[in-house]
Design a protein around this nucleic acid. Structure first.
Length: 911
RNA sequence: GGGUGGUUAGCUCAGUUGGUCUAGAGCGUCUGGUUUACACCCAGAAGGUCACUGGUUCGACUCCAGUACCACCCACCA
């Protein structure tokens, strides 16, 4: 016999190995079944499983398991990410801990990359096993990695193609430079944090200028103001003047530009184009000179003068201030000026804008012949990458769930600037561009510059050795190819005679499983990743990467804060939860009661609640097994399908009918991606209907065949949500020949078992019992006092042959019915004739209460009726509404009239 | 500054095109209970003018407008 409580720890690992070894996670490329594909957002190869992964894995596993059971060839491609900056930093930090002061310099590029790759290899098993702990039914035989050679080939192919299309260009632009990590980061990776700092006002010739960063002001020789600012009308654009500044007198020029807000402070400012985005743009507009003030480590350059050169900016600030103070140029200082400081979201280092030579993707150039979601449909009208991104969502080729993210997505695209794709770190896909110093010509920046998919050892022009660009690509560049690069045939990527198009056409997995159906991920990487996948995949393959984007919300602490490892008090670690409550309980607690795209909170009691549910299911199954044992029925020989027989009781027929409704609702809900609704429907059906009513009614009168059939159906329906416990129970009750639960076909509605009448009748019984319970709780019953009880059911009346049922239920409720059996018979017959029953029970129900309820119902119904009547008399409605709507209203009208008549009757009988 | 959401029981949240919802669930609280699975249980109770103000409608938690507060995202205000 099974133990009283379900033990996840002793079950889950065994079940997972069983699944994995069976090969059921690996779909066939051969079959002609419809496919369903999900690409798993790859966790960091060196990372640890956190709740963000857990919720992603749970949702995707539900999708995949459902579709697999629906008979589709379901492929879930797992993988890991090389996480460029994060991984390189971890390895460097480790080396430094081991005593190596400057790992980059000491090891050199080749050796450091080897060390990083080795580190990834040794630590990747951790995340792999943690993904398994969640029950993820992904195809490990197709596991991918963003630094695979295959992916590198794809990256290079796309880069070269974009370069040749003029979509990738190199330019001196202002970038978000992180002096700590010695690299630039994309706009999306910059966070803005509000901070309070002193704000200084300086005299700059005849003007007053304000700044929080006096240390950047050495090279400022332009003063800018709004062209319409009346205060400065006397100054003309291009006027020059002499003025005293930090390191002596300078010549300054007046510039008029609309970027200046006249309402802010004095309405004029000086600019530092090399270290500020706005200033850079102003300088570009007016073709102004600009120079670097701060070096890439964050120290002042020689332009600051001997006194300050080489000083880190934090140290320089007070000294610059002191000097200006002495010169009498400080007008005033405002304390606590609130402004935003740019921070690198990876590593949290401060961003110092710098001008650097970088690679960019042009999002506005119209060169993409996008013609729809299928490959090969080319449009004569060329679009820009931006426009393609907009088009695929606009036309519905890609659907975003929840819908509200459409707006956010479009808004982001509207403000999208060219994407800076080069990074100054070593770990990543190296920019496939090669430079020949001999052929290079300073007057033409592109001379001596070659793009190449393959490593280019010598210059194709002069035969000299060439040097590869030292930068690597933004990690999102390679991630953006994820849905299809993981399906490319590895052997083909070694053949350099093939084009990317050839490779795709010859890759069986790509042909069969792409585009993918669902991209499920957190809304926080909609821009980083989802949008970039759309951009790159439509361009590179002529195909959309996925049909539906399902965005989940963030999991927060009980207090609503973001989970962070630094706060172990409130941070929930899935790896601690799984042994304690089981992966199934964790999955349910993250999915039920949540809506997509909204953040949710997770805490211990919530998970415990779902653990209780899992245990409830376990015990309900035990009960079923015990009933079978008692009846000496071998449950493995019971057929999977059930057919009604003459001796099927009301309870049986009602349950079977409710089960059909359940199958229908769950299936419809799954198709519409309403995961929370479906989960809650299953939860309440299992607990509130199956356990609380059907199993209770079975006591003393069990029908093993129905019990087993219902239990099996529930296990099938629940399997995507809680795969471990359902599979474990399935082992105990499956038909002999049936396979594992995960490969069982999804249950279908059996119309023959649908019996609404039986369901309604049982509902009457349930109402009766409930009323009696309420009555007993409400009233202090004096055993000696016998009174008539009126019970009302809103569900109609019982059939004659269900008399037995009532009697049995009354016994179940321990109701001491008056000793006179005839009287009880009478009560039951009364019940049969109407919807009220007079039973000589030990209680009393207030007739007035019932009356009040009925009157209220009557009032609301008649109002409803007036409404419909008005609608049906409205000519505009009749002419504009579709025929089926009008008919629906008519049906409502008749049914409401019938209901009103019934209420009338009841009221009369009460009087 | 721009945008997007939220405001429903003590707490955490559902509520799919406006009407069979007399607004639900879980947790918590209270009362009673060891009845042929389950105390990780059973039966029941209390608890909500669905943020506020108007509007549309026969009818609004649901649609519209405005207000307040909260959250998040984006942004070059020195």
């Amino acid at each position: 016999m099974l133990p009283k409580a379900y033990d996840p720890q002793g079950t889950e690992d065994r079940i997972y190995s069983m699944w994995e070894e069976s090969g059921a996670f690996t779909p066939s490329t051969e079959s002609d079944k419809e496919t369903f594909t999900i690409s798993m957002p790859p966790p960091n190869a060196t990372g640890q499983l956190h709740l963000g992964h857990a919720v992603m894995l749970a949702l995707e596993d539900i999708f995949i398991r459902y579709e697999r059971m629906k008979g589709k060839e379901a492929l879930w491609v797992p993988g890991t990410d090389h996480a460029a900056i994060a991984t390189e930093n971890v390895v460097i930090a480790r080396l430094q801990k081991e005593g190596m002061a400057h790992p980059r310099e000491e090891l050199g590029r080749e050796e450091l990359l080897k060390r990083i790759a080795a580190f990834v290899e040794t630590s990747r098993d951790t995340i792999r096993s943690q993904v398994r702990k969640m029950g993820s039914s992904c195809d490990w035989s197709r596991e991918a990695y963003t630094m695979d050679p295959t992916l590198n080939r794809c990256v290079n192919e796309v880069f070269v193609q974009m370069y040749n299309d003029g979509l990738i260009y190199r330019g001196n632009r202002i970038v978000n430079w992180d002096p700590n990590l010695q690299t630039n980061v994309s706009d999306d990776e910059v966070e803005h944090v509000n901070r309070k700092d002193p704000f200084y006002w300086f005299q700059y010739g005849p003007f007053q200028i304000g700044t929080v960063r006096p240390e950047t002001k050495f090279g400022d020789k332009y003063v800018v103001m709004h062209p319409d600012d009346e205060r400065y009308r006397e100054y003309k654009h291009g006027d020059t003047f002499e003025c005293e500044w930090i390191n002596g007198p300078i010549t300054a020029t007046v510039i008029k530009d609309a970027a200046v807000d006249p309402a802010f402070g004095s309405g004029c400012m000086t600019i530092t184009p090399w270290h500020d985005h706005t200033d850079f743009e102003i300088a570009q507009r007016h073709k102004l000179d600009y120079g670097q003030i701060i070096d890439f480590e964050g120290k002042l350059l020689s332009v600051a003068g001997e006194e300050f050169a080489g000083l880190p900016i934090e140290e320089a600030r007070p000294k610059v201030l002191e000097k200006l103070e002495k010169k009498g140029l400080v007008v005033r200082v405002e304390d606590n000026y609130e402004h935003a400081v740019a921070i690198n979201s990876r590593g949290k280092g401060k961003i110092e804008p710098q001008v650097r030579l970088q690679w960019f993707i042009d999002v506005n150039k119209k060169v993409v012949p996008w013609g729809g979601k299928r490959f090969g449909v080319l449009s004569p009208k060329k679009m820009s990458l931006k426009e393609v991104m907009q088009t695929v969502v606009n036309t519905g080729d890609i659907k975003i769930i929840p819908e509200k993210f459409n707006k956010i997505y479009f808004h982001w695209i509207d403000n999208l600037r060219d994407w800076c794709i080069s990074r100054q770190i070593w770990w990543g896909h190296r920019v496939p561009v090669f430079y020949c110093t001999k052929c290079g010509d300073s007057s033409s920046p592109e001379s001596g510059q070659y793009v190449s998919v393959q490593l280019l050892p010598t210059c194709p022009h002069c035969g000299e050795f060439v040097e590869q660009d030292s930068d690597t690509l933004d990690t999102w560049f390679s991630s953006a190819l994820w849905t299809w690069s993981t399906l490319v045939d590895k052997s083909l990527t070694e053949d350099y005679s093939l084009s990317l198009k050839d490779i795709l056409e010859k890759s069986p997995d790509y042909q069969r499983f792409h585009p993918t159906q669902v991209m499920e991920t957190g809304y926080d990487i909609l821009f980083f990743w989802v949008a970039r996948m759309i951009l790159m995949t439509t361009y590179a393959t002529g195909n959309i990467p996925f049909e539906t984007v399902y965005l989940h919300g963030l999991i927060r602490t009980r207090e609503g804060k973001k989970m962070s490892k630094s706060d172990p008090e409130t941070c929930i670690d899935p790896l601690e939860i799984i042994p304690k409550y089981g992966a199934d309980a964790l999955r349910l607690s993250m999915i039920l009661g949540q809506s997509p795209g909204n953040d949710s909170r997770l805490y211990d009691e919530k998970i415990a609640g779902y653990r209780n549910f899992i245990n409830k299911l376990w015990n309900a199954s035990r009960f079923v097994f015990m009933q079978c044992e008692e009846a000496k029925v071998d449950l493995h020989t019971i057929a999977i399908s059930y057919q009604l027989s003459a001796d099927s009781s009301l309870a049986d027929r009602a349950l079977l009918s409710a089960l059909q409704d359940l199958i229908r609702d769950v299936t419809e809900g799954m198709e519409a991606y309403r995961l929370s609704d479906v989960g809650e429907r299953l939860y309440s059906f299992t607990w509130d209907y199956f356990c609380d009513w059907y199993l209770e009614l079975s006591k003393g009168d069990a029908n093993p065949a129905v019990l087993v059939h219902a239990l099996r159906t529930l296990l099938l329906l629940l399997h995507p949500y809680c795969p471990f416990v359902t599979e474990a129970l399935w082992e105990h009750c499956k038909p002999q020949e049936a396979p594992m639960l995960l490969t069982m076909p999804w249950p279908e509605v059996d119309a023959k078992l649908h019996d609404q009448e039986a369901f309604n009748q049982l509902q009457v019984v349930i109402d009766v019992i409930s009323s009696i319970r309420v009555m007993r709780a409400e009233q202090d019953l004096e055993p000696a006092k016998k009174v008539n009880v009126v019970i009302h059911s809103k569900h109609g009346s019982l059939l004659e042959n269900e008399r037995e049922h009532i009697i049995r239920l009354a016994r179940l409720e321990n109701l001491t019915i008056d000793g006179n059996p005839q009287q009880h018979e009478n009560a039951a017959s009364t019940f049969l004739q109407g919807t009220e029953v007079h039973m000589p029970l030990e209680g009393l129900v207030d007739k007035e209460k019932v009356r009040a309820k009925l009157i209220k119902e009557q009032a609301s119904l008649s109002q409803f009726l007036t409404g419909i009547q008005a609608k049906l008399n409205n000519k505009t409605f009749l002419s504009s509404a579709p025929a089926e709507v009008v008919q629906g209203e008519q049906e409502k009208l008749t049914s409401t009239q019938e209901k009103l008549a019934k209420i009338q009757e009841r009221l009369q009988s009460l009087a």
